[in-house]
Design a binder for these strands. Structure first.
Lengths: 151, 151
DNA sequence: TCTCCTTTGACCTTTTCTGACCTTTATTAT
DNA sequence: ATAATAAAGGTCAGAAAAGGTCAAAGGAGA
């Protein structure tokens, strides 16, 4: 397991007991023996708003980084996701949204994998690059609607 | 015996003890003294879904290739369905396949609805008619693969 | 010979990680 | 008060580390 996932795991486990954790970027970097900017990388790839996290921070003396898990009912999260898809979306962002939906219990892990597969680069290979995002968004929305319908 | 079969043999024997193996493309290529892309050739010709295997991979630092053997049961039914889809399929035929899979207990009704939504005319509106069938087939296959993956 | 299967190499995309440089905030000295 | 300094955190470009794709060359049989 790479460094990024180690750090992400550390943060997640800290978030298990509390809904919000506060940490020092420098300390964390030192603990994992990496560059401080690596922490920013972890936060932006694993704790994005799309994945259901809010990250706040403060610079200067006594600075900190606070990570909070956003919680809401399945229905609301589904609707929010639907709204957030927009007219175009890339595979990575779509996967992030699915992570959030799964964590919120709005979809099952199996449904998440299914949807991810339907929108994967693999599935949409052959579609012209400039049309791919829009098509993915359309498919995503139809699937989310089907979920909302069933639930 | 050619290189391809040697590598295939190596992987199969690794799969005998475990249901799933993880390997580094570069390492394997080095061990057999061949081009890395040769590994992809082996995987696509000897470990395809039609042959009962699921291959996942990740790029970038710490990347890997994981190969899983699918055993008899609902999974295998999915693989057979996958093989039957072909290069192109229309919405009606796809729906028929889904009905059969549901009846066979290989997928849940919810999964069926989800897949139908992803392949619906609505989702694929905007795609040129002459490309729609092929795209639907590709999406369908990826979703079936994801189903087999689950559980 | 002709065809199909193999094999390679050149080029591409994705993911991770670092370092140089920048901005913000708190504290301390004048 | 003000100015200097120290102590955070933020950004971004680029290197490095994987794996993916595709067309073309090579080989083994029919």
């Amino acid at each position: 397991m790479g460094l990024t996932d180690l750090v992400a795991q550390f943060i997640r486990s800290a978030l298990e007991s509390d809904r919000s954790v506060e940490l020092r970027r420098g300390e964390l970097a030192e603990r994992f023996g990496c560059a401080p900017s690596q922490i920013n990388y972890v936060l932006s790839t694993r704790f994005s708003p799309e994945q259901g996290y809010i990250v706040e921070s403060r610079r200067g003396g006594g600075g900190y980084i606070r990570i909070r898990r956003v919680e809401a009912g399945p229905r609301l999260i589904l609707m929010h996701a639907l709204a957030s898809v927009g007219n175009s979306i890339d595979a990575v962002s779509a996967a992030a949204v699915l992570t959030n939906l799964d964590a919120a219990g709005a979809i099952t892990p199996a449904e998440g994998r299914l949807m991810a597969a339907a929108m994967s680069e693999r599935a949409l290979a052959g579609v012209p690059a400039e049309r791919k995002g829009a098509l993915r968004a359309e498919i995503f929305k139809q699937m989310l609607l089907a979920c909302a319908d069933a639930g």
